[in-house]
């Protein structure tokens, strides 16, 4: 609209032409990438659709779900929930430590660099890699799962926490330091009050992520409902597998509702009080 009102000058026209060319170029590149990778991965478009229908027809083996196995699913579901419920607080506690140590406006360089380094490495490592390494070291069971999720939480929450602290107005921190407060008092009375609500909201969100991840990790050795699902599939007990899927859905969906509610409360009221 503003373009129609202003008189198009030669430079404005040239600008727009250049922009148009850039869009065309980007679209061409994207197209080439998609087609190229499809060829590389041998995506068979013609064979894909019948395959899809065949896959869908397999779904009928999953119905009706084996309601009788529900009782056996409750235990593993609780294990999965427990895995996330134990791992998240540990992850949160570690994240607070690493976040404080990694914030440029609080911690000295010799501490900040390694803390940020650890956070970055944890972010880069996929959870499955961590779990497989830990299973090799600690054996199969829920414990390596807990450690994996706790470590994974630090990669995300530690980073968010450190960044949030760095965004606090330096003058607010100075104004507390100027009454003679120690560094830890500054943390307690200026830093934590300013960043805690958003940090809590992120931690609750991370619990949701950890719950979904703990289903997946269950299938590769952490136990719980994920393991149940995997066993049923391996034994071709599809109705039982379907029941495991339904229990998982209920678990994750329920956790999501609760987490949504808590998160909104934390952000609106600034705390859980």
């Amino acid at each position: 609209m503003s373009a129609a009102l202003s008189i198009p000058t030669a430079t404005a026209r040239a600008d727009r032409a250049r922009r148009a060319w850039r869009i065309v170029l980007a679209a061409t590149l994207m197209g080439a990438l998609v087609v190229g990778s499809a060829i590389l991965c041998r995506v068979d478009v013609v064979g894909f659709l019948p395959g899809l229908f065949q896959g869908l027809s397999v779904l009928r083996f999953f119905f009706p779900p084996d309601v009788g196995s529900l009782a056996e699913m409750v235990g593993p579901a609780l294990v999965t929930l427990l895995l996330a419920a134990v791992a998240t607080p540990f992850g949160v506690a570690l994240s607070i430590l690493f976040g404080l140590a990694g914030a440029a406006n609080l911690s000295p360089a010799w501490l900040r660099a390694p803390a940020r380094g650890v956070i970055a490495v944890e972010r880069a490592l996929p959870e499955i890699v961590v779990l497989l390494l830990l299973v090799a070291a600690l054996g199969v069971g829920p414990f390596p799962g807990v450690v994996t999720l706790a470590i994974g939480s630090v990669g995300m929450l530690g980073r968010l926490f450190a960044d949030a602290i760095e965004e606090i107005d330096a003058r607010v921190i100075e104004s507390v330091a100027c009454v003679g407060a120690s560094r830890w008092q500054v943390v307690r009375y200026a830093v934590l009050p300013e960043v805690m609500p958003s940090f809590l909201a992120n931690a609750i969100f991370r619990f949701e992520i950890n719950l979904r991840a703990s289903v997946l990790l269950g299938a590769v050795g952490a136990g719980g409902i994920g393991l149940e699902l995997q066993k049923a599939m391996a034994l071709l007990e599809y109705e039982r597998a379907m029941m495991a899927v339904l229990v998982t859905l209920a678990l994750v969906f329920g956790a999501e509702r609760i987490s949504d509610f808590l998160r909104r409360r934390v952000l609106e009221k600034g705390g859980l009080r």
């Binding site: 607010v172 407060a181 300013e194």
Partner: peptide, 29 residues
């Protein structure tokens, strides 16, 4: 520092704390 009362511009208070908490910060040291 505890012997010097600094009157900063008001927007340097800790916004998420109650007014009373912001006042009590004065005696942290």
């Amino acid at each position: 520092r505890r012997r010097m009362g600094v009157i900063f511009q008001g927007f340097n208070l800790v916004k998420r704390l109650r007014v009373l908490d912001n006042v009590m910060i004065g005696r942290l040291a």
